[in-house]
């Protein structure tokens, strides 16, 4: 009896895992989609060119075209999603005198915005 139970438990766990994978887009894609809204809300496009964002044609800061291929963030950080999320929350902490303001981002919002920019190959 026990082996049968154990087997069915394994099968159930595997099924649950499969269900989670098939439900909705993958986590990274969902984050990127949320990031699109965050970037719109935070008016990033006032100052940056950002592909896929409506009216994002600003020329105050650097263009974010091909951002995923960029080596550095603002010339001071290695371009990783974690570094970018930290930078977005406090641009002036990394670049003193930075004209880029610190919009109040939650950790999830910063991660989402970083996930979107990571899709810009």
């Amino acid at each position: 009896m026990m082996p049968v139970l154990r087997l069915s438990a394994i099968v159930l766990i595997a099924l649950a895992g499969a269900c989670r994978e098939t439900r909705g887009p993958a986590p990274a894609a969902a984050d990127a989609q949320a990031g699109e809204t965050v970037i719109t809300r935070m008016a990033c496009g006032s100052c940056h060119v950002i592909p896929g964002i409506e009216e994002a044609d600003g020329h105050v800061g650097p263009s974010l075209v091909h951002f995923a291929r960029r080596r550095t963030i603002a010339g001071v950080l290695v371009n990783t999603p974690a570094n970018l999320a930290a930078y977005l929350k406090a641009p002036q902490a990394f670049v003193p005198g930075n004209v880029m303001p610190a919009e109040q981002l939650t950790d999830a919002e910063a991660r989402a915005a970083a996930a979107y920019l990571a899709t810009l190959e």
């Binding site: 008016a43 006032s46 100052c47």
Partner: peptide
């Protein structure tokens, strides 16, 4: 606010 007010540096 959506549409959200833009920054005006540009």
């Amino acid at each position: 606010m959506l549409p959200t007010p833009p920054y005006l540096l540009d």
